[in-house]
Simulated scan of single mutants.
Amino acid sequence: MAEEAADYPIIDSHIHLYPASEVETLAWCKPSNPLHSQHSLDEYTAATGSPPSLEGFIFLETDRKHDLESGARDGLGWEFPLMEVDWLKRIALGTPKEGEGHTSDQRKLCLAIIPWAPVPSGAEVLERYVAEVERHAEGSFGKIRGFRYLVQDKPKGTMLQEGFIDGLKWLGKRGFVFDLGVDQHRGGKWQLEEAVEMIQKAHEGISESEKVTIIINHICKPDLSVYNQADPKFVAWRTAMFKLSKCSKTYVKLSGCFSEMPLKLKTAPVDEIFSALQPYLVVILATFGPFRIMFGSDWPVCTIEVDDAWKKWRQVVARFCDLASLSQAEQIMIWSGTAIQAYGIKELM
């Protein structure tokens, strides 16, 4: 049954790619990091096994080095994020450079691109930046469906700054989504509480059609070593997910969970992983429902200390769909339909 569920068309809503020549532009990737090497489309398709059901992926920015202040002033702090746009353009248009690890016929797999953006700098700076993105993206700009500015490692109050809220409103009015990356496990429950307030402020006084769509990454990164549902960490996460689910035009990615598991769990068989995650999966289904949940792998981050991570996570999600007795329509939404709807991927509709 689980294998049948996984045979639905799949859109992987969250992957990262970068060529060897640009690894040094990543803000987080030191030489000691296990991901300090090329992670290209060739490596990704090999990791997935290229199942016929894989329709494609959505690329998420890889946190390139940037200078928010100088970028806002003169654009000089945007060099590496714009270099990433150039790299994704070559994938999306099928015009690879030698050694970058992708081919022209793989361009059909690139369904959407979510670059970095200086959201805290406000609408005026954001408009200048997106104009630069359009210039660099050229014929691939239609694939750019939204932007991300990681807040999981930022100080309290970042999401509530006037410029940040102004930037989110600008994205909504221009039809772009915002990918939200918060981290309860390492950052604390305040990040989730602040995210709720951020969405409320960004939607306040805005017509439904112009409200920014928020796509929550990695179910907010709860600490998956916590199995007791009475634990304050679990209760705080569950409370936040209920509040976030009440926000309109807000979706969640069923992704990124391997990074939050203890080593013993992430290397366990699929049945044990599913059993440990069941309380979290029940909350996600009860709050957001299958029509606002989307499958994502978080490749290659998911591969750290995990063998065959992509295939393993696919089996976990398939088991979830099967044991939750989801209908065919509900399963299609989780595997691909929610991503198509949330990101506005017209080509597959």
Results as ranks from 00 to 15, higher is better:
residue 106 Q to A: 14
residue 39 H to W: 14
residue 226 V to P: 11
residue 89 K to H: 14
residue 170 W to L: 06
residue 344 G to P: 08
residue 93 L to T: 11
residue 140 S to A: 15
residue 328 Q to S: 13
residue 342 A to W: 04
residue 295 F to D: 14
residue 277 L to K: 11
residue 16 H to W: 13
residue 55 E to S: 08
residue 273 I to H: 12
residue 23 V to K: 11
residue 239 T to A: 14
residue 123 A to F: 06
residue 78 W to E: 09
residue 230 A to N: 15
residue 52 P to A: 08
residue 192 L to E: 10
residue 88 L to H: 13
residue 265 L to G: 00
residue 296 G to M: 06
residue 238 R to V: 00
residue 55 E to R: 15
residue 96 P to H: 03
residue 104 S to P: 06
residue 154 K to A: 15
residue 44 Y to T: 07
residue 111 L to W: 05
residue 107 R to P: 07
residue 310 W to Y: 15
residue 156 K to C: 02
residue 287 T to L: 01
residue 137 A to S: 05
residue 289 G to E: 04
residue 265 L to W: 01
residue 229 Q to Y: 06
residue 231 D to V: 09
residue 268 A to Y: 06
residue 198 M to N: 07
residue 44 Y to K: 10
residue 226 V to A: 11
residue 171 L to M: 12
residue 95 T to F: 11
residue 26 L to P: 02
residue 24 E to H: 08
residue 157 G to P: 07
residue 223 D to W: 02
residue 316 V to Y: 09
residue 244 L to A: 14
residue 158 T to W: 01
residue 27 A to N: 10
residue 187 G to H: 03
residue 2 A to V: 03
residue 331 Q to I: 05
residue 47 A to N: 11
residue 225 S to Q: 01
residue 4 E to D: 09
residue 266 K to P: 02
residue 10 I to K: 13
residue 262 P to M: 02
residue 135 R to M: 05
residue 304 I to C: 10
residue 160 L to S: 15
residue 178 F to D: 03
residue 328 Q to D: 13
residue 125 V to W: 05
residue 145 R to C: 13
residue 77 G to S: 06
residue 118 P to K: 10
residue 210 E to N: 12
residue 164 F to D: 11
residue 198 M to A: 10
residue 167 G to C: 10
residue 135 R to L: 08
residue 51 P to M: 03
residue 152 Q to W: 04
residue 256 G to Q: 04
residue 60 L to D: 04
residue 268 A to S: 14
residue 62 T to A: 14
residue 139 G to R: 02
residue 342 A to H: 06
residue 332 I to P: 02
residue 184 Q to D: 01
residue 59 F to A: 11
residue 255 S to N: 03
residue 275 S to H: 05
residue 260 E to V: 03
residue 209 S to D: 14
residue 176 F to G: 09
residue 75 G to C: 14
residue 31 P to W: 07
residue 43 E to I: 00
residue 125 V to F: 09
residue 236 A to C: 07
residue 158 T to R: 00
residue 345 I to Q: 09
residue 205 G to T: 08
residue 279 P to Y: 12
residue 44 Y to V: 06
residue 69 E to M: 14
residue 253 K to I: 11
residue 242 F to P: 01
residue 39 H to A: 12
residue 231 D to P: 04
residue 264 K to F: 00
residue 210 E to H: 06
residue 156 K to Q: 07
residue 275 S to W: 01
residue 62 T to H: 01
residue 302 C to R: 03
residue 117 A to T: 12
residue 295 F to L: 14
residue 51 P to C: 05
residue 307 D to R: 11
residue 36 H to E: 02
residue 311 K to N: 15
residue 155 P to Y: 09
residue 121 S to Y: 08
residue 212 V to R: 02
residue 98 E to T: 15
residue 119 V to F: 14
residue 117 A to R: 13
residue 159 M to E: 13
residue 233 K to N: 09
residue 158 T to V: 03
residue 299 W to K: 02
residue 252 V to G: 05
residue 209 S to L: 11
